[in-house]
């Protein structure tokens, strides 16, 4: 069973519909027992990291998510769900986050030709091979909407990169059974659907 973690900070409908499109039913839940029992977990998110973490903590989900990742079962973070798996975020002041991957987030600086938020389709360059990339050409375009970007402290946790506003940033993070995409994989057309399909087939190894 695939569980979408509901912490009132994500467009869960879109993710659920995209999973259905690639042939996978999913359950939306914020219940710790349902989350712990999942075969694989999707952790979406939109909005601000600070309020997202507040909600995670209010629902008592931080230890549940950490325990899930420790089991080795596949975990996919999306957008803000890719940011709050790090140690901290600069959004809403310096917010303490889940610490599943060492590092934090920084904000883009607007400049000529680079508006903030970074909104639209940008290429994603695969930095190393991964089961999630099966059938997706390197430098394919994915859909982004974000002002903050992940800055993992260990570059070994970077699976793919994009460029914006003079910054080369981590587009996909990965460590063992944990993967997280900064773009909206559920709104990224055929390539996004393929990545979700690959996630559903992934055993958590790499």
């Amino acid at each position: 069973m695939i569980v979408l973690v509901d912490y009132k900070a994500g467009n869960l409908t879109s993710v659920q519909l995209a999973l259905a499109e690639v042939g996978h039913e999913s359950v939306i839940s914020s219940d710790p027992s349902v989350i712990s029992a999942a075969d694989r977990l999707v952790f979406p998110g939109v909005g601000a990291a600070g309020s997202a973490m507040e909600e995670v903590n209010r629902l008592g989900l931080a230890p549940v998510l950490k325990d899930f990742v420790a089991t080795g079962k596949p975990f996919l973070g999306i957008c803000v769900g890719c940011q709050i798996i790090l140690d901290w975020s600069l959004e809403d002041g310096r917010t303490a986050c889940l610490g599943l991957i060492p590092g934090g987030t920084e904000i883009f600086t607007p400049g000529p030709g680079s508006k903030v938020p970074h909104m639209g389709w940008n290429h994603v360059g695969f930095y190393r091979p991964h089961p999630l990339f099966e059938g997706i050409p390197d430098r394919s375009h994915f859909y982004y909407v974000h002002s903050y970007y992940p800055t993992p402290s260990d570059h070994a946790d970077v699976l793919a990169e994009s460029d914006y506003a003079g910054v080369r940033f981590a587009a996909i993070l990965g460590r063992k059974n944990l993967a997280a995409v900064q773009f909206h994989v559920e709104k990224s057309g055929a390539h996004g659907l393929r990545l979700l399909k690959n996630f559903c087939a992934w055993d958590g190894g790499c």
Binding site: S14, L17, E21, Y143, H184, E186, K187, S188, G189
Partner: peptide, 8 residues
């Protein structure tokens, strides 16, 4: 629309 369109 959301069931058929997987872009924003």
């Amino acid at each position: 629309v959301a069931r058929k369109v997987f872009i924003p």
